[in-house]
Write a protein that binds this DNA or RNA. Structure first.
Lengths: 224, 224
DNA sequence: AAAGTTATGTGACTTATGACACACTTCCTC
DNA sequence: GAGGAAGTGTGTCATAAGTCACATAACTTT
């Protein structure tokens, strides 16, 4: 399979591009380049202009941000097939976090100027993108308002479910980082996780959480 | 001034259309119609397809929603110069609230099909819209995550400042509705307002709040 | 293997806010 | 103007979650 065809598949999996037609998608994918990164190499830093969209072909990219105390907090891991920077490529605003290769990686790169020129050539695609962005706005405002008002167990369960969707039942994350994600103190996170361990919903190891009962967890996430 | 020119001015005031060129803006405004509503007349209801964007020429439109207990809660008042349904007109999704005329009103109406055809004719405008939507997405995700984690006084101050921007220093809203806005219990809202009254930041009347010290209020909103 | 560093577990305390209960006021309606 | 509805003011209590303090466990470095 060609590089471009491979990229088209990745684009297709992202909700943002999911309902483009196969032909449109392929023409878009044809604009991509590839880029190699060595382990530890920096892809971009907070404040850099958002001049491209990236897809992970192989390897791992860490999205992280410097915390106020100088320590670094990982916000997300992007693995093969994941796409990131979709919004940045459209509006060109500065990056809000750093991205570093967690291992030797190869990325698909779709440059902003190429993408914009494409949209100008294909206004029907631009309109589809507009609709998708609108959906995202609605979805965000519905979810957010609701989500942050939920009690901690619900927020925590939701985040764990989301992580599980990416990594399977073995989530590799520290409780401190989990706390940052859900906007809670580390201790509170720990206490809730302990409670769930006693109910056999999950198991805990250093830097790792093993989800044992996703059924129960998702029902908590739905707030019963 | 022609109807269309008047509408162009309203569009221009909305961030969503603010940086369109004067010519593009005028061509867009030329697509508008007008519609008259008698006092109490229903413009649309929750669940109706979002097939138009509205601007208030004169009168008042209330955006409200039926609460679970059957009572109605007013979510927003739109006065002359206000624009609403910008997102609906783009993505065509169903309305999420009801809109009713609070008095005899005249509206500018920009129909979805006209707007989409316009975007297809003018891809450069479509791209500008895309960027604006992206900004909105960023803005939302930054604000939301941050905002809901703030303590109640901050959320309350922010909402009051926002309302003041629309209505001046005399905000006409019940404490119960204010509670809905900021996601808090009526009693908590009341207690905070009382505290501020004692500090001479504001004054309270039935169904009305008089902001007396916006400087202090905005500094609270910024979380000191 | 000793020492240091990071992650986790847990108790004691504090604080913010929600929940309930009820008094009081204003306004509306008949 | 009597009665009711809606809005407001306040006390009491319960609870969720943050904070602080420290113990313990697990990896790392030398």
């Amino acid at each position: 399979m060609s590089k471009q065809a491979e990229f088209a598949v990745i684009l297709k999996m992202n909700p943002m591009f999911a309902d483009l037609g196969a032909d449109e998608l392929q023409r878009l994918a044809n604009l991509c380049h590839t880029q190699h990164l060595a382990n530890g190499e920096v892809l971009f830093q907070k404040g850099d202009p958002g001049d491209a969209l990236f897809g992970v072909r192989r390897g791992q990219i860490r999205i992280e941000t410097g915390a106020s105390d100088g320590s670094r907090l990982t916000l997300n891991f992007m693995g093969p097939g994941d796409l990131f920077g979709e919004v940045a490529v459209l509006d060109g605003q500065n990056r809000t976090a750093d991205a570093t290769a967690g291992e030797a990686s190869e990325l698909f790169v779709l440059r902003r100027e190429d993408f914009l020129a494409f949209l100008e050539r294909e206004p029907k695609v631009a309109i589809k993108i507009i609709m998708l962005l609108c959906q995202r706005i609605r979805w965000q405002s519905e979810r957010m308002e609701e989500s942050m008002l939920q009690p901690l167990p619900v927020r925590l369960a939701r985040r764990l479910c989301a992580l599980a969707a990416d990594y399977g039942s073995e989530v590799h994350i520290s409780q401190e980082q989990l706390g940052v994600f859900v906007g809670a103190a580390r201790e509170s996170v720990n206490r809730q996780l302990q409670a769930w361990r006693k109910e056999a919903i999950l198991d805990l190891q250093r830097g790792r959480i093993l989800l044992k009962n996703m059924t129960k967890l998702t029902s908590i996430a739905r707030n019963e």
